[in-house]
């Protein structure tokens, strides 16, 4: 029983971390129809920046600085690598995204010298705590709470503000919204800023739990978060969050059995099943293709 509770708890917390990354994927896909392959690497870079910054300044400064720098990175990536290709075929933009991911990983490899680096312990959230007699860290409980708060805020932003309305309009029809006077470029930038901010928050929570950062440590969580976004119905924020929690829990349960090798494979199998059976995901809207 104790084992079971601890599995579920850690599954929910992993799911929450995936959810924060998945929102970035789902929002960008909703607007640009682009799988932002670099998103997982932005998450990794946020982790690395925290390591280097916390070495030289106290946490109450380094945490906000990391958040700001990650947001800036996301913004710059969009401006430098995706904006010039706005009228290019979708495949080119995706290749550009893969190129950015390659670049970020190689820069990280150069900066760290290939050595795994250890994430700093953040005082409050890495403290041990007992829940139902199961020893764990505070981060396990904080993650889902944080995710719910952020998602509620984000949904409010999207449903009740002018920016949110513009975002929905751009996601619905790129050209028509441009004709209605929406500044597409700034809306896309805001999307990337929100996505990167959530990825930075996610990285703080994730690396507190798994405190080793290597240049490729963003790739797997990134892909899984994308699967979560597809599972929940791409473009839908609640869908992405629910998908991420389901994947997180399933993965942790599999890791506890004899099939540990398949914990990553399971996620992809789920993806393929969903794509074949219900390509729009749990909450996605059916898109009609016009000839």
């Amino acid at each position: 029983m104790e084992f079971f509770i601890s599995q579920i708890l850690s599954g929910i917390s992993v799911g929450g971390q995936y959810a924060l990354i998945a929102i970035g994927y789902t929002m960008v896909y909703g607007i640009l129809r682009l799988i932002n392959f670099a998103h997982g690497d932005v998450f990794m870079v946020a982790g690395l920046m925290m390591i280097y910054l916390s070495a030289s300044m106290p946490l109450y400064i380094s945490v906000p600085v990391v958040l700001i720098l990650t947001v800036l990175l996301g913004f710059l990536i969009e401006r430098a690598a995706y904006k010039p290709l706005r009228s290019a075929p979708r495949m080119s933009v995706m290749i550009s995204a893969i190129g950015v991911s390659y670049l970020l990983q190689n820069v990280a490899l150069y900066v760290t010298g290939g050595q795994p680096t250890t994430y700093p312990a953040i005082p409050f959230i890495s403290k041990p705590v007992n829940i139902f007699g199961v020893p764990t860290q505070w981060v396990t409980i904080i993650t889902p709470v944080m995710v719910i708060i952020l998602v509620v805020l984000l949904t409010m932003l999207i449903n009740h503000t002018k920016v949110g309305m513009a975002m929905r309009a751009v996601a619905k029809d790129f050209e028509a919204s441009q004709l209605m006077g929406i500044k597409i470029n700034s809306i896309i930038s805001i999307t990337f800023i929100i996505g990167s901010f959530l990825a930075a928050v996610g990285s703080i929570l994730y690396f507190t739990k798994y405190p080793t950062v290597v240049p490729t440590s963003g790739a797997m969580p990134g892909l899984k978060a994308f699967v979560a976004a597809v599972f929940g119905g791409i473009g839908s924020i609640p869908g992405a969050v629910i998908g991420a929690f389901i994947i997180g829990v399933c993965e942790t349960i599999i890791k506890g059995t004899a099939f540990t090798v398949f914990s990553d494979a399971f996620t992809f199998a789920l993806l393929i099943v969903i794509l074949v059976v219900k390509p729009t995901g749990l909450f996605g809207e059916r898109a009609t293709d016009k000839v």
Partner: peptide
Amino acid sequence: PVLRLKSDYLAIATLGFAEIIRAVFQW
């Protein structure tokens, strides 16, 4: 199953299959 999918979904599904194959061979 996979070739019915369109551009980027096809990409991610084939990528997923490559990962599954890799896991199976390490079992």
